[in-house]
Design a protein around this nucleic acid. Structure first.
Length: 525
RNA sequence: GCGCCCGUAGCUCAAUGGAUAGAGCGUCGGCCUCCGGAGCCGAAGGUUGGAGGUUCGAAUCCUCUCGGGCGCGCCA
């Protein structure tokens, strides 16, 4: 029986209270291992209900409770110190268990425009999205990752024009690059790639446009995939905006909204009454020139995910600068009969630093550090982990020089070092002849209860949709291990067998977290 | 002006409504005859921006207020 149920039952019997009238209480870890392992602050609420002092309540409960633990009443708290045998049983069971939730989930992230390389500004969203996907795959019936390719619209047109101009320059034409064209060097690379494969001047206008529209864009998408792979992000679905348009989803959205009386025409445009769903102003769906707004196409895309592919929940990892889209997207999906199926993870901005100076980023001038360059400089693991060192709600200062250093400032080494140390112990050849008795010390108990909280920590990470919580859990686990390692010997100890098992479980559990985080499990460093 | 995020140690950040608010960096002082010292231990450092409120209990929830960030297009 769980501690929670034991306490409930004891309370009911001791104070003659029906089970359903017992106030809610938590089972939590004590702030200090010296107080015990688990704490149940049940005395406070009951004290009021029973008109009794909190410590009187807990004292009576403590006297009544028995099980594989010692129990202490301190103020309103019941403090449980679990028996060594109880911990040994837990150790034998293992700790890696996930909460289970029903449903099919789709996580969309990065979705950088295919008009330029993935740059460091996309990095945080990419890593957050990929870790969320790994986690959700363990928790939900189905979870898939998706990259939405904005391969239609004005930006792509301008991109194609930029490539074309560079092609003509390569062919020897003397042309100026207009200011509002894409300036980056990579445009020249694409132009060169095309020139190497096609006899440009022999193509008709239509053929040229098709090459730009298809080949140049496909090449960008391939580059995106390659860049993301380098930082350990492998996105399953790449969905094209062109396909969403081709399949008539935008028209369907307009049709559905009109049928519900939620769309109207004004000033030659078609508007959605989003104000009826909490938005602060109505939104244009179809511009007066007949073109669809980006907003309409995005709504259409979400409708496609829900209705065509049958996802129960769609998660979007967006930069904080997309805050304005949340209300209107919610509004549209509610209007279309899918309320509360969209969850937006807003990831706050990252500021990149180098030796105390901000890293300049200007897309216009084509000056930006690409994700490739970052990964090349500091490595995949350091890049991934650094992006996860703050909760998604907090802005992140990413100092590239610090992340490159192999020092404690850099949590990736701290965590990996703990893993290596543990691995190293198990690599020793030895004969273990001692039995399975044990007395766990404070450091071991600290590590044990951290391991034991695996499922709960995962539950919290899912609820908050924040991979930062996995990173911080991994860090705490590494911390607990370093302390254990420092204070207790494994090999040659009186409790060698049990400690050996503890190290194995630690490796198994931390390894699971490293897998989720997409960080290498090093054996040596 | 409106909406969202953030104000916690010198700096960067943690903390399910619970006990004495914790880490890293920086500063000062210790620990390898010993499974890897990329580690560990200790010291110093706090009116959790401010004011009210809810609660047995608030960094956490509510109201107001002051600072900082982001966003408020028939752009994408």
């Amino acid at each position: 029986m769980t501690l929670e149920n034991l306490v409930k039952q004891a309370t009911s019997e001791e104070f003659n209270i029906p089970l359903e009238e017992i106030p809610r209480f938590d089972v939590q870890f004590t702030p200090d291992p010296a107080l015990g392992d688990y704490a149940v602050p049940i005395g406070f609420a009951l004290a009021k209900q029973l008109r009794m002092a909190p410590d009187e309540v807990t004292k009576r409960l403590a006297a009544k409770l028995n099980g594989p633990f010692a129990v202490d009443a301190v103020k309103g708290y019941l403090n449980f110190t679990m028996s060594d045998q109880w911990w040994l049983d837990a150790l034998n069971r293992g700790f890696v268990r996930y909460p289970r939730l029903k449903g099919r989930v789709l996580i969309e992230f990065v979705s950088a425009n295919p008009t330029g390389p993935v740059h460091i500004g996309h990095g945080r969203g990419a890593v957050v999205g990929s870790v969320l996907t790994s986690l959700f795959k363990k928790v939900f019936d189905t979870a898939n990752s998706e990259f939405y390719v904005n391969d239609a619209g004005e930006q792509i047109r301008r991109f194609c024009q930029s490539v074309e101009l560079r092609i003509r320059q390569l062919m020897g034409e003397n042309l100026e690059l207009p200011e509002d064209y894409y300036q980056g060097e990579y445009i020249i690379d694409i132009a060169r790639w095309i020139v190497e494969r096609y006899s440009w001047y022999e193509l008709s206008d239509e053929e040229r446009w098709r090459v730009l529209w298809n080949d140049a864009v496909s090449l960008m998408i391939e580059w995106h995939q390659a860049s993301l792979h380098k930082i350990g992000v492998h996105i399953e679905n790449w969905v094209s905006e062109r396909d969403i348009r081709k399949q008539g989803w935008p028209e369907r959205v307009v049709h559905l909204l009109k049928a519900k009386g939620l769309a109207y025409e004004s000033d030659g445009a078609v508007w959605f009454k989003s104000t009826e769903f909490g938005d602060d102003k109505d939104r244009v769906l179809v511009k007066s020139n007949g073109e669809f707004t980006y907003y309409l196409v995005d709504v259409a895309y979400h409708l496609e995910k829900l209705e065509n592919r049958g996802y129960d929940m769609v998660v979007n990892v967006w930069g904080a600068d997309h805050i304005g889209h949340v209300a209107r997207m919610d509004a549209a999906l509610s209007a279309l009969g899918h309320p509360e199926k969209l969850r937006v993870v807003l990831v706050q901005t990252v500021r990149f630093w180098r030796e105390g100076k901000p890293v300049a980023m200007s897309k216009r001038k084509g000056e930006f550090l690409t994700l490739d360059e970052l990964v090349e400089e500091i490595g995949k693991d350091a890049a991934r982990l650094t992006f996860l060192t703050r909760s998604v709600d907090s802005t992140l200062d990413f100092d590239i020089e610090v992340a490159k250093k192999q020092a404690m400032e850099n949590p990736v080494y701290y965590i990996q070092y703990a893993y290596v140390r543990a691995k190293n112990i198990l690599s020793k050849e030895n004969e273990r002849t001692f039995g399975h008795s044990v007395q766990f010390g404070v450091e071991e108990r600290a590590l044990l209860r951290l391991l034991e909280s695996f499922e709960e920590r995962m539950k919290l990470a899912v609820r908050k949709m924040d991979p930062f919580l996995i990173q911080s859990y991994a860090w705490e686990m590494a911390d607990a291990f370093h302390k254990f390692y420092q204070s207790q010997r494994v090999i040659g100890s009186e409790f060698e067998n049990v400690r050996w098992l503890l190290v194995e479980r630690f490796l198994e559990t931390l390894g699971e977290l490293l897998d989720l985080l997409g960080i290498e499990k090093l054996e040596r460093m």
